[in-house]
């Protein structure tokens, strides 16, 4: 079974972001970038499927500028067999990415596509669902457990009220939630080996996909900072303040 896993280069989740003074966007110059944490979980799941003998080949794919190849190398170090870079410098968002990924799905014909449920930059939570729609595949979003049996994938989903399990016909799209697995760290020898694994490049043109224009970004602002308050010395003082100052009790 072939698994396609999509990864995104985003700001490292520990970095505190800055908005550009002209409010056109977030300032990403000289900021530490990394693989989106949900994508790490997606890669890990693919690798575990291969370790279990369920997956036979893992292809990692990303859409983005040249620098995004770093994240493909990370995926290769973690266990992907080869990688495809869809190179573009355009501002692409979920619909555009989903269309480009569909181009790759058409070429690669995977049995399963795994993506992170959301990227921590735009927080859209859309691409997997959109790819499923465009390819006519079923979708198992926000997965906390995945198992493959008899041409179907069973996905346990984290939903607001608890957990839901669905069975999907293959090929299918799965998006990972936080508790699907705990991703491993790449070991040095694997990082070295990853440099020699095949990495091919595509462009929107070679895939024959015209990128959908994302919504126009008019302005980016810093939200009103919350002012830290006071420390209280005792439970009595806390209860008093909540009653008489904040008036919430």
């Amino acid at each position: 079974m072939k698994v396609l896993v999509a990864v995104k280069r985003v700001i490292d989740y520990n970095v505190k972001i800055r908005v550009k003074p002209d409010h056109t966007d977030v300032d990403l110059t000289n900021v530490k970038m990394a693989m989106n944490p949900f994508c790490e979980i997606a890669v890990e799941e693919a690798v575990r499927l291969k370790e279990k003998g369920v997956a036979t080949e893992i292809v990692a794919v990303t859409v983005g500028p040249k620098t995004a190849q770093e994240q493909l190398r990370t995926a290769l170090a973690l266990g992907a067999d080869r990688a495809i870079h869809v190179e573009t410098d355009a501002r692409v968002e979920s619909l555009g990415v989903a269309k480009l990924l569909k181009g790759v799905v058409d070429e690669e014909q995977p049995d399963l596509v795994i993506l992170g449920k959301q990227a921590i930059d735009t927080d859209n939570n859309q691409t997997g669902q959109m790819l499923a729609a465009l390819t006519g595949m079923p979708q198992g979003t926000f997965a906390s457990e995945v198992s493959i049996e008899n041409g179907e994938v069973s996905v346990t989903r984290e939903i607001d009220g608890g957990l839901q399990t669905v069975k999907l016909r293959l090929p299918a799209v799965v998006t990972s939630d936080l508790r699907l697995n705990e991703p491993r760290y790449a070991k040095l020898p694997d990082i070295m080996k990853a440099k020699k694994k095949p990495l091919e490049t595509r462009t929107p043109e070679t895939l024959g996909v015209s990128i959908a224009a994302p919504p126009t970004l008019l302005k980016v602002e810093t939200p009103a900072e919350r002012q830290g308050g006071v420390k209280v010395a005792s439970v009595d003082e806390l209860v008093d303040k909540l009653k008489n100052e904040a008036k919430v009790l």
């Binding site: 859209n124 859309q126 997997g128 669902q129 959109m130 790819l131 979003t141 607001d160 994302p214």
Partner: peptide, 23 residues
């Protein structure tokens, strides 16, 4: 923007070939 809305609406948007605006 619940797990139901987030599951369904992006799929609708892609089928209609439009963007989706989240949350």
């Amino acid at each position: 923007a619940t797990t139901t809305g987030k599951n369904v609406l992006p799929r609708v948007a892609a089928l209609k070939d439009v963007n989706q605006i989240s949350e």
